[in-house]
Design a protein around this nucleic acid. Structure first.
Lengths: 189, 189
DNA sequence: GATTCCCTATCTACTGATAGGTAGATATAT
DNA sequence: ATATATCTACCTATCAGTAGATAGGGAATC
């Protein structure tokens, strides 16, 4: 029997490194996390991080990969919900990240910085958006909405932008007000 | 006769410093510009920058202040255009920044990083959004649109998000497709 | 007309902190 | 014995920032 290609599961330490790095990156971007800061927070030495992630570039790549998989994995299955429900779920995923964790979307952050990101990290960031666009286009196609590609883009743009705006204004409820009618509005013809 | 409070005009060198710093910041954020890089690009020594801007914080603040004034100054007068025209002008301002300069909006960038920005820079960034919200609310009120505050937020969110998305996908035309119907759409009841 | 003084703007030379990264020793567990 | 995971100790490069010298250009004084 052929084994499917499986990802090597992350060790405890590697997970902790990613957890801390992700939080720092989602607060201040790619240049806002350092090996030293991560290490001191989890109680190891910075050299030890290089054992798990040889370079910062590799760490950044792992960061985006894990984030993308988790983000898309947290979305419900498309064949078990109406398009409206799917969209509401999608908006809720962003809202949770913003309200519960008080953090930016990792890829919204990296997307803003993309011109100064190492190539592999930039590529993974693009993959995040690509896969999100595909997911949303499927929703809009199922709803029979015109221009599903443009609507998918509108949806992501408005959500990422609303996170930035709400955080900038230090008014998290602004996210709610800006995205409350998004699912219904973007679905109507 | 009482003199109105006037801003001291920037020297040639100070302007050049801001020009270079702005471009770097709009590519990679607050941590992506350094005194050394700026200095070497304009052919002076990094110590000379401190003469014009004592600290990086001060330089960041000057950056956002100039950007905000220019951005709002480039918008037409509200009493000389219909709400639809004003909105089209507003969208065009973002499009120009993205397409012609191939740069992010400075405050979209700083807004994403706001949790790790020095206080004065964060405050100026908030001011940018505050003043933009006011401008847009005026437009929506003049158009008799309901919820002008939410619509102003939606507009900014979608434009900032569309910039990030288009740059991430390396597809500048995506900005066009995502924002093409924005003025009409956000104005209809 | 020459001298003195001050202001502007830049320079050289430096500091202490921090960045990512490496070599090689060490400890533990299988 | 070997593989895993961590350590100490170090490297070079870069960071923002500082002290103090220097050069030039007025303007006032002699």
């Amino acid at each position: 029997m052929q084994m499917p290609k499986t990802e090597k599961p992350l060790s405890d330490t590697a997970s902790k490194i990613l957890d801390v790095a992700e939080r720092m990156a989602r607060q201040g971007g790619y240049y806002a996390f350092s090996f030293r800061d991560i290490a001191s927070e989890i109680g190891i030495k910075s050299a030890s991080i290089h054992y798990h992630f040889p370079t910062k570039e590799a760490l950044g790549e792992a960061l985006v990969t894990r984030y993308t998989d988790r983000f898309l994995g947290a979305l419900g299955r498309l064949d078990e919900a109406t398009p409206l429900e799917s969209l509401e779920q999608y908006v809720a995923a962003y809202r949770r990240a913003l309200i519960e964790q008080d953090l930016m979307c990792l890829c919204g952050m990296f997307g803003a910085e993309i011109a100064r990101l190492p190539d592999p990290v930039a590529r993974r960031t693009r993959e995040f958006f690509e896969r999100n666009l595909v997911w949303l286009e499927t929703v809009f196609r199922a709803a029979g909405a015109p221009n599903p590609e443009a609507r998918a883009g509108e949806t992501i743009a408005r959500l990422e932008g609303a996170m930035i705006l709400a955080r900038s204004m230090n008014d998290m409820d602004l996210f709610q007000r800006v995205t409350a009618d998004l699912p219904a509005q973007v679905l109507r013809d």
